[in-house]
Amino acid sequence: MQLLVQSQRQDWLINQKDLLNYSLTTVPFSIGTADGFLAKTDKLKGLKHVTEGTDHAAIPKDKTLVIEDGNALFHSMKDNPSNFKHISEKLFNMTQKKTDVIFSTDMCKQGSVKAMERKHRGRGEKLLVKGENTKKPADWMNFLTNDEKKKQLVKIMC
C-alpha cells in the first residue's frame, strides 16, 4: 500500500502498469485474504478440472504403482501395538501387497500455509523416540500433532 501512496509523488516517475504488477495487500490474494489471513484451499476440487474429459482406462495390476499417504495411515491406526517396532510393522501390513508401493509422508515447512494451520490447531509436546523398542505414547493422536515426533517414527520405520 505504501508503494501506491509513494507513487503519487510528483517528483517520482513510475509507470502505473509496472506499479500494478505488485500486490497492494499485505498478503497476495493467491495465498491469503485482504486482512492478512492465509487462504486454505481444497486441492481435490482442482482434480476435477484436470481429469475433465478423460476416460478412466483400466490399468493392468502389474503396471500399477500405489502411493500410500503415510500421514493418513498414521491417523487411521486403531489399537496400536505396544512399541514403535510393532507399530511400524502394523503400518506396513496396512499397505497394498501385490504391487509396488511408495510410502509417502509430508512434513510442512516452517512458514507455509500448512504450518500456520497446524500451529493454530496446537501441537503436542516433544517426545524423544529412542529406538524401535520405545513404548508407544498413551495419546496417539496427540503424538501425531508434532512433526518432530512423526519424523522420528518415519526414521524408525526406515
Rank of each mutant, 00 (worst) to 15 (best):
D100K: 07
A39Y: 03
G32A: 04
R121N: 12
D35V: 15
A57L: 13
M141I: 10
L24S: 15
L4E: 15
L144Q: 00
K43W: 07
N71T: 06
D139T: 08
L24Y: 05
T145I: 03
G70M: 05
M157R: 01
N133R: 12
D106V: 13
I156S: 03
S88C: 09
N142A: 13
V27E: 04
F143Y: 12
F143N: 00
N93Q: 14
F84K: 07
E117S: 09
A138K: 15
D11S: 13
L144P: 09
M157C: 13
P81W: 03
T105D: 03
Q16R: 09
S88G: 09
G124T: 02
N71C: 06
N133Y: 08
E52V: 04
I102T: 02
R123L: 11
D147G: 08
T33H: 10
A115D: 11
K17N: 13
H49S: 14
T54Q: 11
M107T: 11
K98A: 08
L128S: 09
L91C: 03
M1R: 14
L3S: 08
I59P: 01
L153M: 07
V27H: 08
K85T: 04
D147N: 04
Q6K: 06
V50L: 13
M94C: 04
L91D: 06
S30A: 15
N83Y: 02
F84A: 00
E132I: 07
K119M: 10
L20K: 08
K135S: 11
T105W: 11
L3K: 09
Q10Y: 11
E117G: 01
R123Q: 11
V5S: 15
F74T: 02
K109M: 08
G53P: 12
I59V: 15
T33S: 11
L47A: 07
L13Q: 10
P28L: 08
K135Y: 01
W140N: 05
D106G: 05
K126Q: 08
R9S: 07
K98G: 01
K85M: 15
N142G: 09
V66N: 02
G124Y: 05
L4R: 14
C108L: 00
I14N: 00
S82L: 09
I14D: 01
L128P: 02
K63L: 06
S82I: 10
V66G: 07
M1K: 15
V129L: 15
N146H: 12
M141Y: 05
I87T: 14
Q110S: 10
V129R: 01
T145Y: 03
G32F: 00
N71L: 06
T145W: 01
K136W: 06
F29M: 12
G32Y: 02
T134A: 10
N21E: 09
T25L: 13
T26A: 12
D42M: 08
L65W: 04
G70S: 00
D147V: 08
K155P: 04
W12T: 09
Q2R: 12
Q6P: 01
T64W: 03
K155I: 10
P28H: 12
H75V: 00
D79Q: 02
L153Q: 00
P137L: 11
A72Y: 08
R121I: 06
L24H: 15
K109F: 06
D69E: 04
A34T: 13
M77F: 03
H56C: 02
Q16P: 07
T25E: 07
N133M: 12
V27Y: 08
